[in-house]
Simulated scan of single mutants.
Amino acid sequence: MVAFTLNGAPVALEVSPDASLLHALRGPAGLSGPRFGCGTEQCGTCMVLLDGAPSYACTLAASACAGRAVTTVEGLGTPDAPHPLQAAFLAEQAGQCGYCLSGILVSAAALLARDPDPDDGAIRAALDPHLCRCGSHNRILRAVRRAAAAMRVPA
């Protein structure tokens, strides 16, 4: 049993001692946002936020999350109140197949939490661990810039 905070709510999941966080999220927790891609930290489809920092759920032991906070794409917003990144990605049509987007969204959320006005270089650096073969990179950059602008509080 491993207990942690998942998307703002306490959970206790029964998993084997060697189970990955990704297995725990997609299995006992019933989430589908974090995806299995490579299993070797090379694609970013499994990316989640662990205590606010992007982390690969495919290689992270679920037991290492005990007492910590895990946020998945499902925890960023809701269908009725999407996170500004989710709204911006829709507005910019920033995804095609969408397989990589959950990881990209959580990494972009971590970026905007630490840098509310990132330049293109900072956005590219934050999203560099993510493999996207759809060719929507320019739209992804526009979406992150749009979300950053929407999140800035007027002075």
Rank of each mutant, 00 (worst) to 15 (best):
V2D: 10
V2H: 03
A3V: 09
F4N: 14
F4D: 12
T5G: 08
L6D: 13
L6E: 14
G8N: 06
P10Y: 06
A12Q: 15
A12I: 02
E14K: 06
E14L: 05
V15F: 06
S16V: 11
S16I: 05
P17L: 08
A19G: 06
A19L: 00
S20F: 05
S20V: 04
L21M: 09
L21I: 07
H23P: 00
H23R: 07
A24E: 03
A24V: 00
L25G: 11
L25C: 01
R26S: 11
R26H: 06
R26T: 15
G27W: 04
G27L: 09
P28T: 08
A29H: 05
L31I: 04
S32Q: 10
G33I: 03
P34V: 07
P34R: 03
R35L: 03
R35N: 05
F36H: 03
F36N: 00
C38M: 06
G39M: 10
C43T: 07
G44R: 09
C46T: 01
V48F: 05
V48E: 01
L50V: 08
D51C: 02
D51P: 08
G52Q: 09
A53G: 01
A53Q: 14
S55P: 08
S55L: 14
C58Q: 11
C58L: 07
S63E: 08
S63I: 04
A64V: 00
A66L: 00
A69H: 14
A69E: 15
T71F: 06
T72M: 02
V73A: 15
E74H: 07
E74P: 05
G75A: 05
G75V: 03
L76G: 13
L76Q: 08
G77P: 14
T78W: 05
T78D: 06
P79F: 06
P79Y: 02
P79S: 09
D80G: 15
A81M: 01
A81G: 00
P82K: 10
H83W: 08
L85V: 10
L85D: 13
Q86P: 13
Q86G: 14
Q86S: 13
L90Q: 07
L90D: 10
L90I: 14
A91C: 08
E92K: 14
G95M: 15
Q96S: 14
Q96T: 09
Q96D: 13
C97W: 01
G98W: 02
G98H: 03
G98L: 01
L101K: 05
L101T: 10
G103I: 07
G103M: 05
V106F: 07
V106E: 03
S107L: 04
A109C: 12
A109N: 10
L112E: 10
A113F: 08
A113I: 05
R114W: 06
D115Q: 15
P116D: 13
D117L: 13
D119G: 15
A122G: 15
A122Q: 15
A122V: 08
A122C: 04
I123T: 13
I123L: 07
I123D: 10
R124E: 14
A125V: 02
P129L: 12
L131I: 13
C134A: 04
C134V: 06
S136D: 01
H137N: 11
H137S: 13
R139G: 03
I140T: 11
L141T: 08
R142V: 02
V144N: 11
A149S: 13
A150S: 15
A150R: 12
M151N: 00
M151V: 07
M151I: 07
V153F: 00
V153D: 12
V153W: 10
P154E: 13
P154G: 12
P154V: 11
A155M: 00
A155T: 06
